[in-house]
Write a protein that binds this DNA or RNA. Structure first.
Lengths: 151, 151
DNA sequence: GAAGATTGAGTACTCAATCTTG
DNA sequence: CAAGATTGAGTACTCAATCTTC
């Protein structure tokens, strides 16, 4: 967006882009430097961690991790290779598979979260009051809901 | 970040991630469907558009577009191929080059911005009051400045 | 030797096509 | 033939190595 002729919401969107890019990069760096899994892996493993049984259909996981089915398929290859998760046949529907977190995968998520949480506090939370955080969440959730799924 | 035990700033960060991912994808789709350049190209061409003389050193452009030098080098190959910009030798320093927007490149930025601006309004601005946008910008700029460049 | 830019090798994604099962 | 998952081909990035000029 051009710098001139900016209604307020354009400046806000621009600020979101900048903060997202900067913090995301720093968090990923902190994870790697701290000997944890990369942010990318964390994004895929967290939905599993939060799922009941630490288990999700591959399609669901793809959706949760914002990846295409094919992209997820290859990522799961690498995560399985690294012993973060295992594929498991799906009883009810022989077409499908589950991804299930291993013990090592669960530990990796917890370790990553310790670093991630610390960094969010340091880079973001530290500079934002409770009130401001709540207000921002409200607005963003409203946007989320207005745009969720449909057109 | 786990869904439980969330201080307010974690929820806010999570909301930023979600909104960023969703809107970014929709905007890119709108650009392509509208026959404009992809978001990716826009991100690289806009800094040029805003630069005096529509001209920037490749290194500067890399920084502005949040790309590595090598990544930018290849992107510039494609943009040059598509007649969006041209490389130009740098008089003062024969090591360096400039990237300069072509006429077509300038037009492409303007066309993309028409769509982009409309989509920001539709997906984001429409759901946010002026006050809220201003408040959000203030907070995010504060974070930006606290984390800009240094540690 | 350091800095600007490019090239080589490797990684990670996409869409379209395919295979398998419902 | 529709849906879940994978595979093939193509694209776009990264870091490390290289080339050129300061």
């Amino acid at each position: 967006m051009p710098r001139d002729a900016q209604p307020g919401h354009v400046a806000a969107w621009r600020a979101i882009l900048t903060v997202h890019a900067e913090l995301t990069e720093r968090i990923d760096r902190a994870l790697v430097e701290g000997g944890a899994i990369p942010l990318h892996w964390y994004d895929a493993l967290l939905p599993l961690y939060e799922a009941t049984g630490h288990r999700l259909r591959l399609g669901e996981l793809a959706r949760a991790a914002l990846l295409s089915r094919s992209g997820l398929s290859r990522l799961v290859d690498r995560l399985e290779e690294a012993d973060m998760l295992a594929r498991e046949a799906c009883g009810e529907d022989a077409r499908g598979s589950y991804a299930v977190l291993t013990r090592a995968g669960q530990a990796a998520v917890r370790k990553a979260w310790r670093i991630y949480g610390r960094e969010i506090q340091r880079l973001f939370g530290q500079h934002v009051s409770k009130r401001e955080a709540a207000a921002m969440t409200t607005v963003l959730r409203r946007i989320q809901e207005a745009n969720g799924r449909g057109k």
